[in-house]
Design a protein around this nucleic acid. Structure first.
Length: 523
RNA sequence: GGCCCGUUCGUCUAGGGGUUAGGACAUCUCCCUUUCACGGAGGAAACACGAGUUCGAUUCUCGUACGGGCUACCA
């Protein structure tokens, strides 16, 4: 085998935002390149001007950046095979298309798109399939069916034409796919694909081959939807006499919708209730905004970890992988052949796992920023001190899957409750409990340190004095302090709040609760 | 329709001629616990079907079914 340096590429067309299937393709190409000490390139395949969407290219680059997929070479970073945008390489492709004509492996075709459409419709009406191929081309309008004089006349008259691949009849085409192994196709089933369009742009079929060879790509990694046209591509390599530099193909299994049928598509995202895009995307035409992993609060580590596992496994029970670990472990032998149904629930679990792996101080600084934003706390507010925030994070994080849940789930750590869970109050409150809480306030008043264990002890002692089981009043204590029926560990919470704050909240809470009880009793 | 690819718990998957078919998510039960979580223990849950090869097939082969992809001067 050759000693070539491994080079892979991701080659999307800028027709809109990249969806997670695209990111996964890029990821696998990146992981494979890095695993083998090679390069990962980004090439933009913008040969179809009609489908060009402004902003899509920037979106693709930003998505890869966010995901931690580093581009060694290509659009946005440059490289020795510049340019990396196919529209800027237009003239390169024509040369190869013409070379194929010279060698007798391609031909000019003058049929109008509308004419072919009409034929197609007609044949379909007869329940047959039309293909522009060895069986039909001699009856169509091209340089094979026409005399060379006629052909030259048409060309010099500037008549529009396309260049088509002349697919030979009755051949077997074999190749080895890195994931699927030996694959065989019959040439009679492949149509004479357009290589160069009438606007002078190449089609994907020609362009990707020319670029892959010129850019010294060793492994062409793409979605399974390309498998049916792969034999045509093999033929083109052969006809261009590039068999020795032909990259190896790997056709990746598709990402399927979680329910229902079909592959995941850009339109599914918000319909299915989970994002299909890495980053937020605003449709330039409709202004519609699509949700995304980054904006929903997913960590790129979790996002990438989840994507890697959709179709690949490490062959071990380890599930949490950093990018570096993915690189170390990636191989095509462990890529599954069947399509993977996307599971939004497991994605959340990955994020939860990565959240728990973050350091408390890192999470505390995130919390600090959102508190400043949410409540406009001053910088010298003691609720923004590192020690306090780290303590909050420790209590909060085990019950969160996302950073952005900290405030939502722990608001009461920072501000006194504005209301109290009515269900708990109406169900559990008894008039004599007021006495208990007052005695508890008394009991803790001499405390200097107000630690969780001290308050807990005093709470239980006070309860005993009142012939109460702690369980009778614990839930009420929580609701009075936090307003909520559920939340972080109670006595550590009290310790965090501090004696003064706890006293205030108890007094306010008792007043509010008693007033509320009194007014409901009246009505 | 034609062609191609695929098929292990609901989902992602491990495995591979003889296994109690393993793990994870989700789900259920129990334990911990004032609560919600976390954590711990356990449960339910799969080799699509039919032939063939074989002493033995979930594993190999062939059919069928089902799923997916492709069938453009789109990628």
């Amino acid at each position: 085998m050759s000693e070539r340096r491994v080079r892979t590429r991701f080659a999307p067309s800028p027709t809109g935002p990249l969806h997670i299937g695209g990111v996964r393709t890029a990821l696998y190409a990146y992981l494979f390149a890095k695993r083998n000490g090679g390069d990962f390139l980004l090439r933009i395949e913008d040969t179809d001007q009609n489908r060009f969407v402004p902003g899509a290219e920037e979106y693709i680059i930003e998505s890869l950046n966010w995901s931690g997929i580093k581009i060694d070479e290509g659009v946005s970073v440059g490289g020795k095979f510049s340019p990396y945008r196919q529209s800027e390489r237009k003239e390169i492709y024509r040369k190869y298309a013409e070379q194929l004509i010279q060698s007798g492996h391609a031909y000019y075709a003058f049929d109008k798109a509308e004419e072919l459409d009409a034929i197609r419709k007609k044949t379909e009406a007869e329940k047959k399939t039309f293909a522009y191929d060895s069986t039909s081309r001699m009856s169509l309008n091209n340089s094979l069916s026409l005399s060379s004089e006629e052909t030259e006349k048409k060309i010099s008259a500037n008549e529009h034409y396309v260049i088509r691949l002349k697919v030979p009849a009755n051949q077997e085409i074999n190749f080895t796919d890195l994931i699927r192994g030996a694959v065989t196709f019959h040439s009679n089933l492949i149509d004479d694909k357009v290589l160069l369009k009438s606007d002078g742009m190449p089609t994907y079929h020609l362009a990707h081959i020319v670029d892959d060879v010129l850019m010294e790509i060793t492994h062409a990694i793409r979605g399974e939807e390309w498998l049916p046209s792969a034999p045509a591509h093999i033929l083109i390599y052969k006809f261009l006499e590039w068999e020795n530099v032909m990259p190896q193909y790997a056709h990746l299994p598709l990402l399927l919708k979680p329910d229902g049928n079909g592959k995941l598509s850009k339109r599914d995202g918000d319909k299915l209730g989970f994002p299909v895009f890495p980053l937020e995307w605003k449709d330039p035409k409709t202004g519609e905004i699509s949700s995304s992993y980054r904006e929903k609060g997913y960590y790129p580590e979790a996002f990438v970890n989840m994507l890697a596992f959709l179709g690949w496994n490490p062959g071990s029970v380890q599930e949490l992988f950093s990018m570096e670990e993915l690189i170390q472990n990636f191989s095509f032998e462990h890529v599954h052949k069947a399509g993977a149904r996307f599971d939004p629930e497991k994605t959340k679990w990955f994020n939860e796992q990565w959240l728990q792996r973050k350091s408390d101080s890192e999470l505390a600084s995130v919390l600090k920023a959102s508190l400043k934003k949410e409540f406009n706390f001053n910088d010298d507010d003691k609720r923004l001190s590192d020690a306090f925030l780290i303590a909050c994070v420790r209590l909060l994080k085990v019950r969160c899957q996302f950073e952005n849940e900290f405030i939502e789930k722990g608001k009461y750590l920072f501000v006194a409750p504005a209301s109290y869970d009515e269900q708990v109050i109406s169900k559990k409150w008894k008039p004599n409990y007021a006495t208990f809480f007052e005695q508890f306030i008394e009991a803790v008043s001499p405390l200097q340190t107000f630690t969780a264990s001290e308050t807990e002890t005093l709470f239980k002692e006070t309860a005993a004095k009142n012939n109460l089981k702690p369980g009778e009043v614990l839930q009420l204590f929580r609701v009075i302090l936090s307003g909520q029926s559920a939340g972080v560990d109670l006595f550590p919470m009290a310790e965090l709040l501090g004696k003064k704050e706890v006293n205030e909240r108890l007094k306010n809470g008792l007043t509010t609760v008693q007033n509320a009880i009194a007014s409901t009793a009246k009505s």
